[in-house]
Nucleic acid binder design. Structure first.
Lengths: 231, 231
DNA sequence: TGTACATCAGTGAACGCGCGTTCACTGATGTAC
DNA sequence: TGTACATCAGTGAACGCGCGTTCACTGATGTAC
């Protein structure tokens, strides 16, 4: 954010970083237990010192969650950017693969944001905007396709429920105003699928079946792109 | 399982049930913290007494997980059975809706089996068979359709990866020997989608967008059934 | 049917840990005049 | 440029909790002869 001017401010930024780093390391090791005292111990501090940096354990967790959303959104955007702008299908696939790649590399961080909620932790409103960034990193591709006219007309096996259309239009206004309702439903469904398959993979549900799950995953996200009619 | 013959055996079965019941209640209340001492306290027992019933905290967790898989599989099968045998599409939709219904009714149990792993707990091999029951409750419908000839030939936008086909055939031998590879990929993808969307819903990711998510969910699973070409 | 012995449920104390958070404090760093 | 005062990082002790697991034990229930 801001450039730290004084030595003290620089030290503060550095320690804040180190605290979060240790916290992540702990999540990686113990699964989901996060102990302030242990972090302090590892940093050679007394436990109460951490309260100069985070007002509570929950606030530290919130910071980790926000960081995770941000990093994931960046990773997706970066993968998206490696493809030609007009090749929306390839962009979608690359974005989904990047999401999975990040999740496999940082399973505990993925669990933090898309796994089941941490015991006793209630996500504050601060996490909503970052969470939306991730969604937007995906929906943005479809929005671009819609604007460029690279999105098939979808036949929706019968009409969509009226109240569902209203929901979809409201969400579209946030995630991609030009994405038609039927297409947005598929985008959300596709996102749910990606999150779900990654969760299954991380949970060991594919062990003995799809290991590695690379091919299955790519086939699946490619089909979503195809169903959306992305060019 | 076995009918308890003696009063002592009956008491034992009863207390075992009560311990699990309290454990579930605790998961529901605290999210994922499970305290043996608290269970004992609530049952008016001394904490060490629980060790007559479960050798450790992990073993209790395992029992809860196995129960959850079993119950979910039963619920899915029951919903499936409410539809006509030959209407495979309706059966699939009913089964998926039942899965979500169970998850919304028992979010902590759903999290136990399809959420992120519990801190410090490593699922033993005993949970594999029950987990398969759930998968089979869904794939069985598609298997039935395949046998009855009610499954479309799928065009697979290009060939499937050879090693993926091998994986799919191996899984098919467990879940539905007559399901063609391309269809099975969709079944697994559809399952991942259901799990993922439910996880998002339980995690509050749909708040402000799809609330309730009934219509979106039904549309999505119906489309999977359609894509599979289920009658 | 009655007695002797084995099984088993539950006790209570203990071991050896862990935790988040508060508070009054010291001493170093930063700021304003 | 130097001094006075305010800010802030980190300390150390304490509060009030919690936990899983082991072990020797009592007394009730079940089993075999």
């Amino acid at each position: 954010m801001d450039q730290p001017r004084t030595p003290r401010a620089r030290a503060r930024a550095e320690l804040t970083r180190e605290i979060k780093e240790r916290a992540l390391q702990q999540l990686a090791e113990t699964g989901a237990d996060l102990s302030l005292r242990r972090i302090a111990r590892e940093l050679g501090l007394v436990s109460s010192a951490l309260y100069r940096y985070f007002a509570s354990r929950d606030q530290l967790l919130t910071a980790l969650i926000v960081d995770a959303y941000d990093d994931l959104a960046d990773v997706i955007a970066a993968a998206d950017a490696t493809r030609l702008e007009a090749q929306h299908s390839e962009r979608w696939v690359a974005a989904c693969l990047a999401l999975r790649g990040w999740a496999l590399a940082e399973p505990h961080r993925f669990a933090l944001i898309y796994g089941s909620p941490v015991p006793g932790y209630q996500a504050p409103a601060d996490t909503i905007a970052p969470a939306e960034r991730v969604m937007r990193a995906l929906s943005g591709i479809v929005q671009a396709a819609a604007v460029a006219g690279g999105l098939d007309e979808l036949d929706h096996h019968g009409e969509l429920d009226r109240s569902l259309v209203l929901q979809l239009e409201r969400v579209a206004s946030l995630l991609g105003p030009d994405i038609p309702p039927a297409a947005l439903a598929r985008v959300v469904g596709g996102f749910g699928q990606v999150v779900g398959m990654v969760n299954l993979e991380l949970g060991g549900h594919f062990v003995g079946g799809f290991e590695p799950a690379d091919a299955l995953f790519e086939l699946t996200v490619r089909r979503v792109a195809g169903d959306l009619g992305l060019a």
